[in-house]
Design a protein around this nucleic acid. Structure first.
Length: 658
DNA sequence: CTGATTTCGTAT
DNA sequence: ATACGAAATCAG
């Protein structure tokens, strides 16, 4: 606790600047951010777990309040620590073997396989270590991809950028300013990692873990809209049928019992086209307002869509701004100008009640939130439940008071941007600097109704949620005829189908060969991508009367979004790390599903699955076996792949790489 | 129950 | 940029 004990790293001579002795290798700890060595014995707190040891941040760099504070507990943590250091220092081991040993250490058992057999392979076999983030040496958490094709954790990348660095930590290529300021999460890579973990857990004896990420292809039939809505367009639309059976004042996740159509509930990661469609699944009912709630009861859900510039999004936690303070007279909705102070009344009071009681608040993020790395690229996405830990008022950017809320995630399902296999654990609250200037600070005194249950290792209601004051949605009460549709959406896909679905090139719709990742985080086959720009050049030469004028830059848009990627096109780099993993998954799926071949497609509704039988897109249903596709692609990559060679195990990579 | 007010949307 | 209707809340 005492801040008087100064924390110091080892000096240039290797000696601890605090105790002056030079510690042996197993007693030094290297910061994953700044790479400075520290003497473990002189640290006030040591990392407790394998993960925290591997991505340990030194006292100088650990500014992130969300990382669990590394509290020294008993002797066991330092034993673990020494054991890990011993593995890392062992020169006789390859990186892969080290990884396996670390894995064994933390899991407490030895892989039957020896790690290189042909049966079950470890996650790390599939996810070759070349995919690891160069900073923390872990699989990238909420991965971002540089134009040079290297992948890092968002947080590691942001720290690096925060230190003023503007080069790729792996190959020293320049990081474009837009990527530095607005890194986008590569959701394809999130899927890769998740799938590899899944394929591991399925191969093992344990019960297969089911992951609930819903992609747009899985969405049910287009939402019902009234004739009147069609007449006037969506902006004037009536909402159409509500598919779930929860009352409008229902708190918390929407479970399978309230989803008679699909019997799966509204799962984290589910996406909708717009707010009206989101409404139909009950995640957030108001189709314009950002807050759903009642001032004398509590708030059930909020939308993050960039409507208030004071908002601040950190994924697992964010600062939300209340509503009001604006003059909306005359049926205006787009007036962003604040002209008076917000107060804790109406919706803002509803949020405060949810804070007071510790209710779970559903959160949806909209693509309209442009300043957040966590916003979906399009549409609206359900991101799970959060609790409001405290709220206050402060003077906002526009000079008027705004209500402020600290939301912290508390969901049993992992967030869409992580590859974690589990949901949230309780975490310490982030330090909020603006609290110093805050007024009307409110904190929860009573114990939260929605809380983490240590025994069950899950978030749950500790007491009964408040009784609903409204009638449940009448949706399906009268109709017993809801057997027909949507059953197919819960069908489990084969690994091969998922490969195609997750790693399909956005242009050719087949499993990517030589994937490239744009700075806007879209993935394509290199050849498809290049073909999309044939005949177009990034530089337009201009001539006038035989005189060459200064050449002008052409704007070239990403095939998937309006981002200008002309710079990226100039120096196209394959995302080899991604390519290697797709290839591994591919091989693995062949091993595991060999006998099946075309069989599991028992006719029925298969053709509707990818929407590929759509009238207009009928011809791409040629159903080229993605396996063939990948195999065909491989010979071409040969020369690219041979340059993969040995792993790079530090951030200081020579520029010989590429 | 009514009507006024509010609302981090959407198509023209 | 502008013009909207729907849906929910809340006051009376």
């Amino acid at each position: 606790m005492a801040h008087d004990s100064i924390q110091l790293p080892c000096g240039g001579d290797g000696a601890c600047m605090r105790c002056k002795v030079t510690p042996p290798t197993e007693e030094t700890l290297t910061c994953s951010i700044c790479a400075a060595p520290w003497h473990v014995g002189c640290l006030a707190s040591k990392p407790e777990t394998l993960a925290s040891t591997l991505q340990w941040h030194c006292p100088d760099c650990s500014g992130d309040p969300l990382l669990p504070p590394s509290v020294a507990t008993d002797g066991s943590s330092s034993e673990l620590f020494v054991a890990i250091k011993a593995i890392e220092a062992d020169e006789s081991l390859t990186e892969k073997e080290k990884a396996r040993k670390r894995q064994e250490l933390v899991s407490g058992r030895v892989e039957e396989d020896g790690g290189n057999g042909k049966g079950e392979s470890s996650v790390l076999d599939v996810l070759d270590e070349s995919l690891n983030c160069s900073f923390c040496m872990q699989l990238p958490d909420r991965p971002v991809t540089t134009p040079c094709g290297h992948n890092f954790c968002l947080k590691c990348f942001q720290k690096w950028i925060g230190q003023g660095k503007r080069t790729c930590a792996k190959c020293r290529s320049t990081v474009p300013p837009k990527m530095a300021s607005q890194p986008r999460i590569n959701s394809t890579l999130v899927s890769v990692i998740r799938m590899a973990k899944l394929s591991k857990s399925n191969a093992a004896a344990g019960p297969p873990k089911v992951f609930h990420f819903i992609h747009n292809q899985d969405r049910p039939d287009k939402a019902f809209t009234t004739e009147r809505a069609q007449k006037a367009g969506k902006a004037n639309a009536a909402s159409g049928k509500i598919f779930v059976t929860v009352p409008p004042d229902h708190f918390g996740p929407i479970t399978a019992e309230n989803d008679p159509d699909r019997n799966q509930g509204v799962l984290v990661g589910e996406c909708w086209e717009d707010r009206l469609e989101c409404r139909q699944w009950g995640a957030h009912l108001p189709h314009v307002a950002g807050i759903a709630g009642q001032s004398n009861y509590g708030a059930q859900s909020v939308a993050l869509s960039g409507g208030y510039e004071d908002d601040e999004d950190h994924g697992e936690w964010f600062l939300y701004t209340g509503s009001g303070g604006r003059d909306l007279s005359g049926n205006k909705r787009t007036n962003k100008e604040q002209s008076f102070d917000q107060k804790f009344e109406k919706m803002n009071e509803a949020l405060r009640v949810s804070c007071k009681k510790g209710y779970p608040v559903r959160v949806v993020r909209s693509h309209k939130e442009k300043r957040s790395s966590y916003a979906p690229e399009k549409g609206v996405r359900y991101d799970g439940v959060y609790r409001i830990e405290k709220c206050w008022r402060k003077v906002g950017i526009q000079g008027f008071k705004v209500c402020r809320y600290l939301f912290v995630r508390c969901d049993n399902e992992p967030a869409p941007w992580t590859s974690d296999e589990h949901g949230d654990r309780p975490r310490p609250l982030p330090a909020i600097s603006e609290l110093k200037k805050a007024t009307d600070i409110f904190e929860r005194k009573e114990s939260p109704l929605w809380d983490f249950d240590e025994e069950g290792s899950r978030w749950k209601w500790k007491k009964a949620p408040p009784p609903s004051k409204k009638p449940a949605n009448a949706a399906d009460l009268e109709e017993g005829k809801r057997t027909r549709k949507a059953i197919r959406h819960s069908r489990k896909l084969s690994t091969r189908e998922r490969l195609l679905k997750e790693f399909g090139c956005l242009i050719c719709q087949q499993v990517m060969s030589l994937p490239v990742t744009t700075p806007c985080a879209h993935n394509f086959c290199k050849s498809c991508f290049e073909a999309a720009f044939t005949g177009k050049t990034a530089i337009r030469e201009r001539n006038k009367g035989g005189r060459t004028l200064r050449s002008q830059k052409n704007i070239l848009n990403c095939p998937s979004c309006p981002t200008d990627i002309s710079d990226f096109l100039q120096d196209l780099q394959v995302n080899r790390e991604l390519m290697d993993v797709i290839e591994s998954l591919k091989q693995k799926s062949e091993e595991n599903e060999e006998p099946a071949e075309e069989e599991p497609m028992n006719g029925l509704e298969e053709s509707t699955d990818l929407g590929s039988s759509d009238e207009k897109t009928g011809k791409k249903t040629e159903n080229v076996d993605p396996k063939d596709d990948l195999e065909n692609a491989l010979p071409n990559c040969e020369e690219e792949r041979t340059s993969k060679r040995r792993k790079v195990d530090t951030a200081q990579v020579g520029d010989d790489d590429l």
